[in-house]
Amino acid sequence: MQVRIQEADFDVGSELAALRRADPRIGALASFVGLVRDVSGGAGVSEMRLEHYPGMTEKALAAIVGEALQRWSLIDALVIHRVGRLLPTDQIVLVAVAAAHRADAFAACEFIMDYLKTRAPFWKRELTAQGSRWVEARDDDDRAAERWRQPGG
């Protein structure tokens, strides 16, 4: 299991290859890549800055991946999240999950992403023609995370 916070871009192909590492138990590799869009709330976005809480971010992501490893039958998982200055079309986040079977890989990948959106301390600031503004949290993200709640969890 690996969690990385970095300013640098990442190469999805080589990251997935490293995660598989020719492990013959892996029959399914699911991944999600989040990208910077050039529009938000009807306004054009020319640039985005991602701030985070060093220390807590890594812990929160490790806890989310740890919970996924408990809930599904997984072989490995990887989260890379970028911070700093990003431009439209840039990659922001990679979540990749390796499992024996696709159902576990798909579900865990979506779960990690939904929890990351609501529990990992990152904040986006967008630069638009009207100036810069903090991105508001979306109720949809809360509802998406809520789906995964278990009784007593």
């Binding site: 985070h52 986040v93 959106k117 990152f122 986006k124 508001e136 949290a137």
Partner: peptide, 10 residues
Amino acid sequence: LAFFPPVTGG
């Protein structure tokens, strides 16, 4: 302690 708004990563 840390105080912050709802998170918006991903």
